[in-house]
């Protein structure tokens, strides 16, 4: 298990991606699966930074914990921003995804891509801490 604390600003996203990509490589995930998990974590971290902290004029950190078992690779993001369950945000429906770009709402795709990229996702808030868990099965 590794645990890192990263400042909750958008410039730190590349560092978060590096941590996840490295863990994926060490776990033997394919490049495609590694990219999907890295994208998923990037999208959830972006939401935490933007909606959990920046929109409220707050600053803080994101604690990123990466755990690996024989069967799973799990990335846990913890933050102390405002409560924000990504699953409660409006996600595009199949009809939305078929719409031409000129008729699209700008937004909603990040969480969609995140949930598509993992085998399990969970959000909990306890003791004023948001905990987003993203997990993929290992080959």
């Amino acid at each position: 298990m590794t645990r890192h604390s990263i400042p909750a600003n958008l410039a730190a996203l590349s560092s978060i991606r590096q941590l996840v990509t490295q863990a994926c490589q060490e776990a033997g995930l394919s490049e495609a699966a590694s990219y999907r998990l890295t994208l998923a974590v990037d999208e959830i971290a972006t939401n935490i930074i933007t909606h959990g902290y920046q929109e409220h004029g707050a600053t803080g950190d994101i604690a990123i914990t990466i755990e690996r078992t024989d069967h799973h690779l799990t990335v846990i993001l913890e933050d102390t921003g405002v409560a924000y369950d990504p699953r409660e945000q409006g996600m595009p429906t199949a009809d939305d995804l078929d719409k031409p770009l000129s008729d699209r709402e700008i937004g909603g795709l990040g969480v969609f891509l995140a949930l598509q990229g993992v085998d399990r996702f969970d959000y909990q808030r306890r003791n004023a801490v948001n905990r987003n868990t993203l997990e993929v099965d290992l080959p």
């Binding site: 994208l39 990037d42 999208e43 972006t46 770009l101 000129s102 699209r104 700008i106 937004g107 990040g110």
Partner: peptide, 30 residues
């Protein structure tokens, strides 16, 4: 690498330039 933030700019481009403007994405990696 492209996150949804990049997709949102594509939507913005279409809406900014007009629906008659064709957008081509060339050589995108897997």
């Amino acid at each position: 690498f492209m996150a949804s933030a990049g997709l949102r700019v594509l939507v913005f481009a279409k809406q900014q330039m007009g629906r008659e403007v064709s957008i081509y994405v060339v050589g995108a990696s897997g």
